[in-house]
């Protein structure tokens, strides 16, 4: 698709020079109450996501994080960066919430995450690309969530985009 001459307005808001940037590892505690609330909002009925006794009865050390909680950890990492005086990744790559959409999300699981876990997340700014002659501008972020003893638990791929018009 060629450039659309009629499309004025902001273009290319992502800071493409950040391609290859890797965040410093961010350490996060997974809180039982937070995980349970998240599971409840999604209407999770499997008690392993909300009931400590039921989770332990199935051999888990604590309640289990729902699969999409990995995305919450990605967001919490940005919060934590801000708290510790660093620029959050969304700011580093130049996200503009007025135009921002979530394009794709993928998770690969090597292990479960439990309440009480301390996990470490790092994120790589893998790529930027455009579609529709620059009317859509994409960034691909790859994150790894790991645990000191259990190793890598989740690998995520998040595609965000700016839509102009």
């Amino acid at each position: 698709m060629g450039d659309n001459a009629a499309s004025a307005g902001p273009r290319g808001l992502f800071k493409r020079e950040t391609k290859g940037f890797v965040t410093k590892p961010v350490r996060l505690q997974l809180e039982r109450g937070h995980m349970r609330f998240f599971a409840e909002i999604l209407g999770e009925t499997d008690p392993v996501f909300s009931d400590l006794i039921a989770a332990q009865a199935q051999g888990y050390p604590d309640i289990v994080a729902p699969p999409s909680f990995a995305a919450v950890i990605e967001t919490m990492a940005s919060e934590e960066q801000r708290r510790s005086g660093e620029r959050p990744l969304t700011e580093v790559i130049g996200c503009d919430f007025r135009h921002l959409l979530h394009g794709e999300q993928h998770f690969a699981y090597d292990g479960l995450m439990y309440a009480g876990d301390e996990v470490v997340i790092t994120t790589l700014v893998e790529d930027f690309f455009e579609k529709r002659g620059g009317m859509l501008e994409f960034v691909v972020l790859l994150s790894t969530i790991s645990h000191a003893e259990r190793g890598v638990l989740v690998r995520t791929r998040r595609t965000l985009l700016h839509r102009f018009g």
Partner: peptide
């Protein structure tokens, strides 16, 4: 996961 159990899920991904 209601169908297979959370421990059996290896990957999930989607386009919005």
């Amino acid at each position: 996961t209601q169908w297979c159990g959370v421990e059996q899920l290896r990957e999930i991904g989607a386009r919005f």
